[in-house]
């Protein structure tokens, strides 16, 4: 048996385990398994609206997931995509609030740039602290998530508040200025196209440019980089900026394509899910796109299953956590199978 084949078997075993876990959980609540699974798949593939809904959720996951993957490639553990996403959303909202009357193209170009920079700077803070002082980025990125949430809350009650509203929401983006609808009668917007374009750009940047090569080298062996004259600091700074920037664009998309105004809680943990997306996608852009679509489908399906068969949608969270743990434990669980015959 070839090495790849053995690896494939181990992944298949993990998939079977997760499926069994799902069936067990469904049986635990006393539901009909067939009905639950029908509800799950019907909720994903049942109508053009539901299929579109998967891609509505996939767009931010792809962008933030790409960001996390770029960071992981250079050895920067970015747990802060959630905060970076919110900062991107804040920057886009500030752009259309502060510059009213801009034509659509100019507004979107300026807004995406602002979102990229805001998210990028939010990741650059822990990135620079790691590059310059060697401070661990893990805690810093988590802290900056909460600080970003705080900033959103403060701005929604002060500078960005819609004075005409009682609740803390920002002024609404004028009709026709946001991302275009791709399909009538669904919520699908051009954010998904931007996400796919970014995936292609990130692929070329990481695998086909010398900067990308240096970035990967920094992630693989910082000490060797120092000996070869590749700057570890520069690698970390570029990757953190790009990583946060991509998450920032995800935030822009949520405002420009979906909510059309800034409110608290625009992200149902997209930033944390993005880490799982990057891990499942093997930090490769194509893998990220597939993993993000899969996770989005899982979430949409689980909600539909709740409506159709009364199975709690918390099941999606359980399955995701379990799959990640199984993948992390894969090499130990399948030690015998994966052992080289030499």
């Amino acid at each position: 048996m070839s090495k790849q084949f053995r690896a494939a078997i181990s992944y298949a075993a993990i998939a079977v385990c997760s499926l069994l876990l799902a069936i067990l959980l469904i049986l635990l609540v006393g539901c009909d398994v067939g009905k639950a699974f029908y509800g799950f798949f019907n909720g994903i593939l049942g109508s053009s609206y539901s299929v579109a809904e998967v891609f509505v959720k996939a767009a931010p996951l792809i962008l933030a997931g790409l960001g996390v993957a770029v960071a992981f490639k250079s050895g920067f553990t970015n747990i802060g995509a959630e905060g970076q996403l919110y900062m991107g959303a804040v920057a886009f909202t500030a752009t259309y609030v502060l510059c009213p009357g801009l034509p659509k193209a100019a507004l979107l170009a300026l807004g995406i740039l602002a979102g990229f920079l805001a998210g990028g700077v939010w990741a650059l803070i822990p990135g620079a602290l790691k590059a310059r002082f060697g401070i661990s980025e893990v805690i810093n990125t988590i802290m900056l998530n909460y600080i970003a949430l705080g900033i959103v809350g403060i701005l929604l009650q002060t500078a960005l508040k819609d004075r005409a509203q009682y609740f803390p929401v920002s002024p609404t983006l004028d009709d026709g200025l946001g991302f275009s609808r791709l399909l009538k009668g669904t919520r699908l917007h051009s954010g998904i196209l931007i996400a796919l374009v970014c995936a292609v750009i990130v692929y070329f940047f990481i695998f086909k440019t010398s900067m990308g090569f240096r970035l990967r080298a920094v992630g693989m062996n910082p000490r060797a980089c120092k000996c070869m004259g590749i700057s570890v600091s520069a690698g970390l700074i570029v990757s953190s900026l790009l990583s946060g920037g991509l998450a920032g664009i995800a935030g822009v998309g949520e405002i420009a394509g979906l909510h059309h105004r800034l409110i608290g809680g625009i992200s149902p943990s997209y930033g944390y899910l993005a880490i799982i997306v990057a891990l499942l996608g093997g930090n490769h852009p194509l893998g990220v796109v597939i993993a993000a679509t899969g996770i989005a489908a899982l979430q949409v399906g689980a909600l539909a299953m709740q409506r159709a068969a009364n199975v709690p949608s918390a099941i999606a969270s359980i399955i995701m956590g379990a799959v990640v743990l199984l993948i992390l434990a894969r090499k130990t669980l399948f030690k015998r199978l994966l052992r080289e015959e030499d």
Binding site: T77, I79, Y272, I276, P312, A314, I315, M320, L328
Partner: peptide, 19 residues
């Protein structure tokens, strides 16, 4: 990776307790 394990556990337990 200890950080990813911790993160996955957060998802797992959040789902499990609600369930």
């Amino acid at each position: 990776n200890q950080n990813i394990v911790g993160l996955a556990l957060n998802f797992l337990v959040l789902g499990l307790t609600s369930f």
